[in-house]
Write a protein that binds this DNA or RNA. Structure first.
Lengths: 205, 205
DNA sequence: TTGATTTCTGACCGCATGGCCAAAATTTAG
DNA sequence: CTAAATTTTGGCCATGCGGTCAGAAATCAA
């Protein structure tokens, strides 16, 4: 590879190489969502992408880097969508409702990404056996949610409560909503999201 | 084996055999909690139990039966403890609070069981690749929680809301509480449980 | 004590995995 | 066109897996 290390630690990749990485990541998402993390072998992913197994080893340092890429790219997509929707909101209650509703809206069209993310989150482990992702990885997300709730408390909208407990519960409720929806595809996701937004808002008042 | 099939489909097991099964199940719980489902091989479990790998195959039909035994036994323990605590409660709010607090109390002394249960729940798959457990497995639990909430609505304690969404959220919030506590052992579990009980009660009023 | 039954051991099997690499194919640069 | 660089291929490897089995050991019944 001719690519060199840039100052920020990222490699400079050619357009073609980046396209290949994208293709492989997309295939990985599909395979993981279909057969689960444990059965998502490099061979299966390569087969799905229509390439030889060695290509993955050529473009990624190893399976772990590939999985991290999947997480990073899916996460980035979600964040981009949700943050754009939250731009207009003023009150904490609006922020809250917009967050719940927009996450649900985005995921309605991206079920496989959601499944794959959950699989990797639950199963990927570092070489030493420790979970690669976990609750501690969500720290940034928790802090973002906390700032919404604290905003509401400072404005006098919300009562006094432990913002960390609220943030953890908020995120868990959203995850559970998706898990339930996946198990019951006929379930009305939007209605669930509305109920959840009501529920959270009342819990704060 | 001399054991015969009894009318209820269960095998009649000698005291010694039952003890061995218990020992193996306990070893499995520990190993799964420590290294995760994917790395919890029969070899590791046998090593932990201080026996030869073949013994597991002798006492269990296969890995799947062993895992199901782990789930059944841990589930039974939790249910026994929590139901006993809820006997006295009258109002729906009391039932709610007692449920949250007693689950937390029981689990404070049984972290490994909790972790192992989660690992199996998320990872065990049938031979055809379909998840062995999943949200649909929680149906019974959801119905039990729903009955509490519906009870509150009928008594006029609680407002009108979708009891299924509330049950799903309730269970997810408890799971998240444990996950967070596992990642942050210094976290005050009892205080979290109290905050969560408040939160749920307010969400219903 | 003796013979039958249950339980355990340790070696072994077939299989799938992640990673590796020499050589072939393709693309790029001069 | 030619030569260098990049990318792909397909087979190979060591490892660990779940499961099996013959035979040893332990236990039990008479």
């Amino acid at each position: 590879m001719r690519s060199e290390i840039k100052p920020d630690g990222q490699k400079a990749r050619s357009f073609i190489e980046e396209a290949r990485r994208d293709q492989i990541v997309r295939a990985a998402v599909e395979v993981i969502a279909e057969v689960g993390f444990a059965r998502a072998s490099l061979a299966r992913i390569a087969q799905r992408a229509g390439i030889s197994k060695g290509v993955i080893s050529y473009h990624f340092a190893g399976k772990e880097e590939l999985m991290e890429q999947v997480v990073d790219r899916v996460y980035a997509q979600i964040g981009e969508f949700v943050l754009a929707r939250m731009e207009g909101a003023e009150s904490a209650a609006d922020l809250l409702r917009t967050h719940v509703m927009s996450v649900a809206e985005h995921m309605r069209g991206n079920r496989v990404q959601l499944t794959a993310l959950g699989e990797i989150f639950n199963n990927l482990r570092a070489a030493d056996g420790e979970p690669r992702y976990g609750v501690h990885t969500s720290e940034g997300l928790y802090q973002a949610l906390e700032s919404i709730y604290r905003h509401g408390q400072e404005r006098g909208e919300f009562r006094a409560f432990d913002v960390r407990v609220m943030a953890v519960t908020h995120q868990a409720a959203i995850d559970a909503m998706f898990a339930y929806w996946q198990a019951h595809p006929e379930h009305d996701l939007e209605a669930h999201a509305r109920q959840l937004a009501d529920l959270l808002e009342r819990a704060c008042s």
